[in-house]
Amino acid sequence: MKNITERHQLILQKLKEQGRVGIQELSDLMEVSGVTIRKDLKLLEDKNLLFRTRGGGSITNPYAVDRPINEKEFINSEDKQKIAKSAATLIKQSDSIMIGSGTTVFELARCLHPTKLLTVITPALKVGLELSNRSNVEVLQLGGLIRPNSSSVAGSHAMRVLDEISCEILFLGVDGIELDFGFSITNIAEATLNQKMIETAQTLVIMADSTKFGRRGLGKICGFDQVQYIVTDNKVSDQTVKMIEDRGVKVIIA
């Protein structure tokens, strides 16, 4: 049986090699209890040497940060544009869609040029402004308290409108996609609104670049059983794609 120093060295070595470690894996490897491993991970986290996750530890922060939208729009912008163009092909003959908040779904609004009338429902001010004078687009802007970080509304006013409408496809951006936790964002108020939007739509399309996989936001919006499509970039591993598609979700690589 290894002493505490040897255990900590081995945990950090495994993290360097793999990026993530699991409690059960470490427990079996070092022949100690899961309780001991949890204490080791806590001590190492206190020293800023790792991040604890559900069932283990990670060398990178698995929790998404609520950055302002004007900062997010410059992150992976090329991938987001490709994702938007691929997502737009799912609209086909739809006459009503909903677009959530975030920089990836905003790129979808930018590339929308329908040949027949399309109603777009959105809580995002930037989406509404982008589409307000676009040919063949009718915008239903949800109202409520505007969050500065996202330039999107949340709250009871928007929820009441959603009680009385339905749409064919909902396009949502997320801050985290985790196989155990599902899909999440960093703000609770917006998470509640997103849950309501999901109830309103017949088809749910998640638009997220590869940096969102393996991360977790504060508020869960749905599980994999509620999602029909994920549109992402080509940096997502084949193994991750297979595990997601095994759950009945179609993954589209932009």
Rank of each mutant, 00 (worst) to 15 (best):
G173A: 13
G155Y: 02
D180Y: 05
F181A: 09
I169G: 01
S150Q: 14
D175P: 02
S101N: 07
G100W: 10
M98G: 15
G176Q: 06
V137S: 04
E130Y: 09
L125M: 14
K126E: 11
Q93W: 03
D163K: 15
D163E: 15
E138M: 13
A154V: 13
K126H: 03
E107Q: 14
L129R: 00
C167F: 05
I121R: 03
G128W: 06
Q93I: 01
Q141I: 12
L179I: 14
A124K: 06
P114H: 05
G176Y: 08
N133T: 11
L118F: 10
E178G: 01
S132D: 14
L125S: 08
L142Y: 05
S150A: 14
V127M: 01
S166N: 13
M159S: 12
L142R: 08
E130A: 14
I99K: 03
P114R: 02
P123V: 03
H113A: 12
S156F: 05
Q141M: 15
V153Q: 07
I99H: 07
G102Y: 10
A158L: 01
L112R: 08
P114T: 02
T115I: 06
S151I: 03
S166I: 01
E164K: 15
S94F: 04
V174D: 00
S156C: 00
G100F: 12
H157P: 00
L179A: 10
L131S: 09
E168R: 04
L162M: 13
I121W: 06
F171W: 04
L131R: 07
V120M: 04
G102L: 05
I121C: 06
R110F: 00
